[in-house]
Design a protein around this nucleic acid. Structure first.
Lengths: 132, 132
DNA sequence: CTGCATCCCTCCTGATACTG
DNA sequence: CAGTATCAGGAGGGATGCAG
């Protein structure tokens, strides 16, 4: 068929790739996606383009180095676009690509899960640590 | 109200916690959840209890140390139960708790996303690397 | 404002070897 | 079979200074 849909291609890809296998390239991609800063940067880009300084302000505690590094990787992987506006001083905006928008709900889900279940995890840890 | 539902409590928790804040405890929880091995171990526990060796076989390339370490942390956080059967040799089974089952779909989503979008990421990287 | 380079230190990770 | 202990390499991450 020449008319395979995007969904069909993705189903095919899911059969071809398996992160349980050691040498599968998805293993490396998975380790990139499972990154603390990625899980914060992607959700932070929810409301359209953001400047470097805006992101740094929103994601408290991120160093300039890690933010730049994370954004570079995301850009290379096609999840984020980097737009430079030649002005003085220079303005740089980051925005989710369509691929980035597909990842967005997944990253938000993790962040939300952590926020919604923090208390239950605290309780579990207390019980665990109180064991003889 | 004395009759708050679990869903309501979670909504409340979501207002109380914010991983964007540096000192919020969810920041630490988030960094634990965004772990390559967690994203593989949780999905691997899909079909009921699994032994240490079964997990090691399924998740190719994981070292015995990292598997044990990951399972310990998951157990402490209340996501996994560890059951020891006193036999010779000893048998140890790991199983998702109800809390673990709530995290399950999120972890599977990441793993699937990586497998389904690997090709698009490859393409983006090729374009990025080919730039002047 | 944004980003690169450098130094430096911590912690993660994986091999190996050893106990119950 | 399951788990602990140990060690060495390397990646992760922070601070600072400089450049476009």
């Amino acid at each position: 068929m020449a008319t395979t849909t995007a969904a069909q291609r993705r189903e095919q890809a899911k059969r071809d790739y398996d992160a349980f296998l050691e040498r599968c390239p998805t293993r490396e991609l998975l380790s990139r996606l499972t990154d603390k800063w990625v899980a914060l940067v992607i959700p932070a880009l929810a409301n359209g383009p953001q400047r470097h300084s805006e992101l740094a302000g929103r994601i408290a505690g991120v160093s300039q180095k890690m933010l730049t590094q994370t954004l570079r990787t995301l850009e290379r992987d096609g999840l984020v676009t980097r737009t430079v506006t030649a002005s003085v001083p220079v303005r740089v905006d980051y925005e989710l690509t369509s691929l980035g928008h597909e990842l967005f709900p997944v990253m938000v889900a993790i962040k939300n899960w952590a926020e919604m279940h923090m208390d239950q995890v605290f309780e579990a840890r207390a019980q665990f640590d109180a064991r003889p």
